Amino acid sequence: MTEYERSRTMPAQPEHVFDQAAQIGRMDAWLPQDLHVEAGDLPAVTVREEGVDEDISALLRARREQMRIEWGTRDQGGYAGWLQVAGIDSGTSEVTVHLSFFDDAHDPGEEAVQDALDTSLRRLEEQVRLGGGDTG
């Protein structure tokens, strides 16, 4: 099993950051650009990767009371991950994203994953900034 983790500080209340991250219909705005999530009968979702013919069945759970989103593949068991939002001080949050690859065949490699995590966190921060200020 291989694990990766990245964090980023964002200038917004944790509730606002979480609300922006947890909107399934807007996840494309911050996920890696080649991944698209479509809601099914929640917690079931379908993940579509550009350039890949087969959709991936996955589970996604957003727990606002914990400021945590968890996901993972449903049938293959290839990977899982979570996003955690924590308040740091007045008006600032830290967002941590963690990925676990249980099968080396699903792991695209450290450089690719770290780049994707950094880009996703940057894109989420942009979405948070454009999303109407803080909700706290």
Rank of each mutant, 00 (worst) to 15 (best):
V113Y: 03
F102D: 00
P108Q: 03
R122N: 06
L121A: 03
Q127W: 00
Q114S: 08
E110S: 12
T73A: 04
G72I: 07
W82F: 15
Q76C: 10
R61I: 10
R63N: 15
Y79N: 12
E125V: 00
R74P: 06
A62N: 13
L59C: 10
A62Y: 02
L124A: 02
D89A: 15
G91S: 12
I88N: 13
W82Q: 13
E94M: 12
S93K: 01
Q84E: 15
S120K: 01
Q127A: 15
D104R: 12
P108H: 01
H106M: 07
V113R: 00
H106C: 06
L124V: 05
R64F: 09
R61P: 05
W82S: 15
Q66G: 08
G109H: 06
R63P: 05
V95T: 00
R74H: 15
E65S: 15
D75L: 14
G78V: 08
E126V: 04
G109L: 10
R64T: 14
V113A: 07
A86Q: 14
I56C: 01
D118L: 11
R63M: 15
I88C: 13
V95L: 04
L99V: 04
G87W: 06
A86C: 12
S93R: 02
F102I: 03
G81N: 11
I69H: 00
D107A: 04
S120V: 02
A112V: 14
E70H: 13
A105L: 10
R68T: 05
R61L: 10
D118E: 14
H98N: 09
R61D: 07
E65I: 07
A58S: 14
Y79Q: 14
R129M: 11
V97A: 06
E110K: 08
A62R: 06
G77R: 11
L117S: 03
T92Y: 10
D115L: 10
S100R: 02
T96C: 05
T119Q: 10
L117V: 12
E65R: 12
A116W: 02
S90H: 13
E70Q: 15
G72A: 12
S90V: 13
L99M: 14
R61E: 12
L59Q: 06
G81Y: 09
A116M: 09
L60V: 09
I88K: 15
D104I: 10
A86G: 11
V113I: 08
H106S: 05
R123W: 04
T73Y: 00
R61H: 11
V113W: 04
H98T: 11
E70N: 08
G81K: 09
Q76S: 15
G91A: 15
D115E: 13
S93L: 09
E126Y: 03
F101Y: 09
R123M: 07
L124E: 02
T92I: 12
S57L: 03
R64E: 12
R123N: 07
Q114A: 05
E126P: 00
Q114D: 07
S100C: 11
